[in-house]
Design a protein around this nucleic acid. Structure first.
Length: 426
RNA sequence: GGAGGAGUGGCAGAGCGGUUGAAUGCACUAGUCUUGAAAACUAGCAUAGUGAAAGCUAUCGGGGGUUCGAAUCCCUCCUCCUCCGCCA
């Protein structure tokens, strides 16, 4: 969430940013309201503080008077305190009301897109940031999509997933399961080599955590919710891993903080039934290795580049053709200032599939998380947070199977052979 | 799930209705001393709101209540510890 002071000082910039996002609400009005509410908040607070200070003083006097045995004086003071208490109660009610409005208003304003974010509505308006310059695999007429390959080599059983749970919960078996496990280890090792600390977090989180990283209230319907215990199944490791630093004031010298974590991810994908749901293209449960960084505000865009390089390097080692998109305003996540998506070419389907999303949230997320540091003047400042998938498994398996299919079987890229324990699936 | 105990600043730990945002120790930061370091000594050292600042206000696990006044009393929730039960 944006800071109120930032909103006050940058109204035009925010409106321009919201336009880039193609934001539908009457944002100008909302921003004016927020500014009004905040002014009202300050005014009420000042009035309230004055009364509280008065009563505090009176109470001290009353204490003194009692000690001196001046009961009557004390009692008359008490009446004044009581009168003030009525006013205080009213102001406190006002305050709660104003704060609610202010908080709700702030929650409705998405992050301001970075200047480089192109205006646009849908994923068709995303800008190709880095094109694939090599040749795309041409497997001819015999190229199979991954769901057929999965069946042919008995790697993934979608029907069993349906039997056990429901659609969108694939079951991996045999070499398919091995491939899955190998990829996870490969991604984690690469992240460790790049200096990320490995975390094994809880897979269910409480409301405070989901709120802090911005899943709530924005994506409430997308998360599985365990009502009995009031917990959410994580839609990404970003939630528990970033929350490690919720409400923490870090030392400036500790930057950059780099964390990685492998977790299954659970997504209800409500509203997207029937769209791209074939095979592994869109599932309710998939595995992902996430990388997260908490950095000095001046460094975040530099760090974003290194994260892009990290993901690119993974895809290169997996010998997969990929391209990088810069998301347009309309496709940009609520909390993000700038997001790059990685897509790999899916040779069996003849289309590009999103396999990673790398974002800089600037201080939008840290403002809710309250991840801060002390600057040179010992003032508390918000850190910047970034994260990226490195990588999301399900679709990587899909493209891996499709791109590396040969008449003799599915070739395992060299970098991965050591992890899966075989060099071909047949 | 049942019974009991406990939650105070970065850590340890006092306070248990009155001027306490909170003793003391450790840690940390700066200074004095020293060739340098250590030790010793001196000072500083929570977060947030508001304000130009001084200051004022809130916060002693969270929320609510009693009281002129609450870290201290009451209610409730959460967390941790011990014991019993169950169990991967």
């Amino acid at each position: 969430m944006l800071q109120v002071n930032f909103i006050k000082q940058n109204k035009e910039r925010i409106l321009k940013g919201l336009a880039t996002r193609n934001y539908k609400e009457d944002s100008s009005k909302l921003i004016d309201s927020i500014i009004e509410w905040d002014d009202a908040r300050k005014e009420t607070q000042t009035a309230l503080d004055e009364l509280l200070a008065k009563n505090k003083l009176f109470s001290k006097e009353i204490g003194g008077l009692f000690k001196q045995g001046k009961q009557e004086d004390a009692n008359s003071l008490k009446q004044q305190v009581d009168a003030n208490k009525v006013k205080i109660k009213a102001l406190e009610d006002d305050m709660r009301d104003i704060k609610d409005k202010l908080d709700n208003g702030l929650l409705q304003i998405p992050n301001v897109p970075h200047d480089s974010v192109p205006a646009g509505n849908t994923d068709e308006d995303n800008e190709v940031y880095k094109e694939w310059t090599g040749a795309l695999p041409n497997l001819g007429e015999k190229a199979l999509p991954h769901w057929e390959l999965a069946k042919k080599y008995n790697l993934i059983d979608f029907e069993l997933g349906v039997k056990i749970t429901g659609s969108g919960f694939p079951l991996f078996r045999g070499q398919g399961a091995r491939l899955q496990r190998g990829l996870i280890n490969f991604f984690l090792d690469e992240a460790s080599k790049a200096g990320y600390e490995e975390i094994v977090p809880p897979l269910l989180v409480n409301e405070a955590s989901a709120r802090a990283t911005g899943q709530l209230p924005d994506k409430e319907g997308q998360m599985y919710y365990v009502e009995k215990d009031d917990l959410y199944l994580i839609p990404t490791a970003e939630v528990p891993v970033t929350n490690v630093y919720r409400n923490v004031i870090v030392k400036e010298a500790d930057f950059p903080i780099k964390l990685t974590g492998y977790t299954p991810c659970f997504r209800r994908e409500a509203g997207s039934y029937g769209k791209d749901t074939k095979g592994l293209n869109r599932v309710h449960q998939f595995d992902k290795v996430e990388i997260v960084q908490i950095v000095h505000p001046e460094k975040s865009y530099e760090v974003l580049e290194t994260m892009l390089d990290h993901v690119a390097n993974l895809l290169t080692k997996l010998e997969l053709p990929y391209r990088i998109l810069r998301l347009c305003g309309g496709d940009l996540g609520f909390t993000s200032a700038l997001t790059f998506d990685f897509e790999t070419y899916s040779a069996g389907q003849g289309r590009w599939l999103e396999v990673s999303s790398v974002s800089n949230f600037e201080n939008f997320q840290s403002n809710r998380l309250k991840v801060r540091y002390k600057d040179a003047n010992n003032k508390t400042q918000l850190a910047h947070t970034l994260n990226g998938s490195a990588l999301a498994l399900a679709r990587i398996i899909a493209t891996l199977l499709e791109n590396h299919q040969t008449p003799d079987g599915i070739r395992i890229p060299k970098a991965l052979q050591h992890y899966v324990g075989f060099d071909i699936i047949n």
